[in-house]
């Protein structure tokens, strides 16, 4: 069965498939001609490259995000046909049969390893799968992987929400020896279009796309949300939303409500979520900063603007005000004592 018949069987038109390939080319700023290469690579990929999807300390939200897009979506099709050898949530097999599929794939090597969820750093026993440390399972799979994709905030640098727990969850990049093999795709959950585009790019080019210092593809994480925010004009004019119930403030800047846009790099303002339906700030919710390594521990509470020192959660402004207060009071008291004691004589 050729690729088009296969697509037709899933009620996907050739046109949609070409559209996806063009979108991937556009996402990475490649010339339009690359769409053809991507299509060819995908066609080849459908026969071959296995994907192993491991879940650590996760909520399966990234899998959900990917699978519950409009059905049957292009994303699902591509990942379906990529031959996902092992995926705890969606695989049909279970028990030793499933584990053997994983073992066989690892023996073969050359697969794309997708990590969802974090790996506990504090103690391996925080995450056990089938009686084994998850960390060992991951390290074994990471050894022979062609590329390791950290999907979602938990699987990338800061460990997302598990990173804020006593288990000290951290992403793949903190454990593997060859950091250049890792492609990080943070955000909570992982954005399906970014994941599919990255896998397809890897299959086409045979290497990772251009990455930034956090191993995130610059195509998706190269710009500051704040710089492209549709509410930026309200920010410049100091129109800040202070009262959720005031209809006048509906479109005001969300900075005072804890928006992390000025600290967060992602293309969310340009490429919206849920197949272009909307995105956080568009829906009136402050940016949570989920594409940043500081997320979640460093950015909580999400709905309050504050700059606290990590240890002890002390507000820097409080420290500053105390310092200034002590200095001022000290000066006044010292001056008064000198005046009374008459020490001013030279």
């Amino acid at each position: 069965m050729g690729i088009l018949e296969e697509l037709a069987a899933k009620e996907i038109k050739r046109r949609d498939f070409v559209k996806l390939c063009t979108a991937v080319a556009a996402a990475f700023s490649l010339p339009a001609g690359f769409a053809q290469d991507i299509a060819l690579a995908t066609e080849k990929a459908m026969k071959k490259p296995p994907v192993v999807w491991l879940e650590g300390q996760d909520c399966a939200g990234c899998s959900e995000s990917l699978l519950s897009t409009i059905n049957p979506s292009i994303a699902e099709l591509v990942l379906d046909t990529l031959s996902i050898r092992y995926h705890e949530t969606i695989m049909a097999g279970s028990g030793s049969v499933a584990e053997r599929a994983l073992e066989d794939t690892i023996k073969e090597g050359g697969y794309v390893l997708v990590l969802e969820g974090s790996i506990p750093k504090a103690d391996d026993r925080f995450c056990m799968v089938g009686g084994r440390n998850f960390k060992d399972i991951f390290m074994e799979a990471a050894g022979k992987a062609a590329a390791i994709i950290g999907a979602g905030s938990c699987a990338t640098l800061g460990g997302g929400i598990p990173g804020a727990t006593p288990s000290q969850g951290r992403g793949a990049i903190e454990f593997v020896s060859d950091r250049s093999k890792v492609i990080n795709l943070p955000t909570c959950p992982v954005k399906p279009s970014r994941l599919v585009a990255t896998i397809m790019y890897f299959l086409t080019a045979g290497k990772a796309p251009a990455l930034d210092q956090y191993n995130r593809p610059t195509a998706f994480y190269g710009t500051l949300i704040h710089d492209n925010c549709p509410r930026r004009n309200h920010f410049e004019k100091s129109y800040f939303l202070t009262d959720w119930n005031d209809p006048k403030q509906k479109d005001y800047c969300l900075l005072l409500k804890g928006c992390k846009g000025p600290k967060t790099y992602a293309d969310c303002p340009q490429v919206w979520w849920n197949e272009g339906a909307n995105w956080c700030i568009g829906a009136g919710a402050p940016c949570a900063g989920c594409s940043q390594p500081e997320y979640y521990a460093g950015f909580t509470p999400l709905y309050a603007k504050q700059d606290t020192i990590d240890a002890g959660k002390i507000d820097i402004d409080t420290i500053g005000e105390v310092a200034v207060g002590v200095a001022a009071v000290g000066a006044v008291v010292h001056g008064a004592v000198r005046l009374v004691a008459g020490k001013d004589k030279k």
């Binding site: 500053g320 310092a323 200034v324 002590v326």
Partner: peptide, 9 residues
């Protein structure tokens, strides 16, 4: 920010 407060003090 912290250094700003330091300079003011």
């Amino acid at each position: 920010l912290l250094l700003m407060w330091f300079f003011v003090s």
